[in-house]
Design a protein around this nucleic acid. Structure first.
Length: 292
DNA sequence: ACGGACACCTGGAGATACTC
DNA sequence: GAGTATCTCCAGGTGTCCGT
């Protein structure tokens, strides 16, 4: 059974990355030669700026997300695929989908074989110190994200904006993308200033959810948001909860639509669409007219 | 204290230039 | 021509500064 994001995953990231990366590529080195994942809030010494870890953690969290979604995919005879390219819906080689659930196990995909898209925005959440003890390296957790200077994952406004921008880019690429759900996967809560926005994005159908797969982002039972009012953001606390939300996304095919029309024009469209006999044909006609 | 804007650097991919 | 070196562009996450 795949596991959600925990401290163990972060230990796993650092220890497995140590097989090919130096401590200096993974940690900040303090004045007194300690190795930190982030600068502790209390640290007053001179600081360096680490860049070499960025793409490593990006790749690790995307792989983690593939593993997390693979059970669900397999259950339906689908595949969780990393780095999916589909030019028709704005997923170029340069800006591929972090993870997608597809009918085939290929990175190059046709729109009709893509069932869901996931944008992964995850960070190292806790602070860690690397300690060498008799040639064995150990990681000591120094505290949660309130104790270090970093602002991980979806707590950063620009990370939120990047995720939103990428989703809009897909929505405006082609109508064939209209039926594909888009979910942002994170491992932190979001800030209060985005509560209303994620609910609006959710209600408007642009993004089908911001999901944090970190059940306990704060130590000592620290309070953090479980979900926003309309569930645009949800914290997922165990695998079955994740599975349930994934199933909900595919129970009935849905269509994204949007427009800017006068009430007069909209009324006419509804009137014409209503002349169809079957209920789904009415919808089909409505979508066609609104997109013309 | 916080959010937004911008800077930072690295590695990979693709394009272009150079060498034989 | 093929093979290799160099350049250009981009996204990854995180640090920092400024204005409120």
């Amino acid at each position: 059974m795949a596991e959600l994001w925990t401290k163990d995953k972060e230990i796993d990231f650092f220890l497995s990355s140590r097989k090919f990366a130096t401590p200096e590529q993974l940690f900040y080195v303090s004045d007194d030669k300690k190795y930190f994942a982030y600068w502790p809030k209390s640290y007053k010494g001179s600081k360096t700026t680490l860049q070499s870890r960025n793409s490593l953690i990006g790749n690790f969290t995307e792989k983690f997300s593939v593993d997390l979604l693979q059970n669900f995919a397999k259950k339906h005879n689908w595949f969780a695929v990393q780095g999916v390219v589909c030019d028709e819906i704005g997923l170029s080689k340069q800006s591929s989908a972090d993870v997608a659930i597809c009918k085939t196990n290929n990175q190059i995909q046709k729109p009709e074989n893509i069932l869901m898209l996931f944008e992964v925005k995850m960070s190292i959440v806790w602070n860690w110190e690397l300690i060498k003890h008799n040639d064995i390296e150990k990681l000591i957790c120094l505290g949660d994200y309130t104790t270090h200077k970093g602002n991980p994952g979806l707590l950063r406004s620009d990370s939120m904006l990047k995720a939103i921008g990428k989703s809009i880019n897909i929505r405006v690429s082609d109508y064939v993308a209209s039926r594909i759900p888009i979910v942002i996967l994170g491992n932190t809560p979001i800030t209060q200033s985005y509560y209303k926005k994620v609910d609006f994005l959710f209600s408007a159908g642009i993004i089908q959810g911001f999901w944090s797969v970190n059940a306990n982002p704060l130590d000592n039972n620290g309070q953090n948001i479980k979900e926003t009012e309309k569930k645009g953001f949800i914290r997922i606390d165990n695998y079955s909860e994740l599975d349930k939300h994934l199933e909900n996304l595919i129970t009935e095919p849905k269509e994204f639509f949007s427009s800017m029309k006068s009430k007069k024009d909209l009324g006419k469209i509804i009137e014409v669409a209503n002349q169809e006999t079957e209920i789904e044909m009415k919808a089909q006609k409505f979508l066609k007219l609104i997109r013309d």
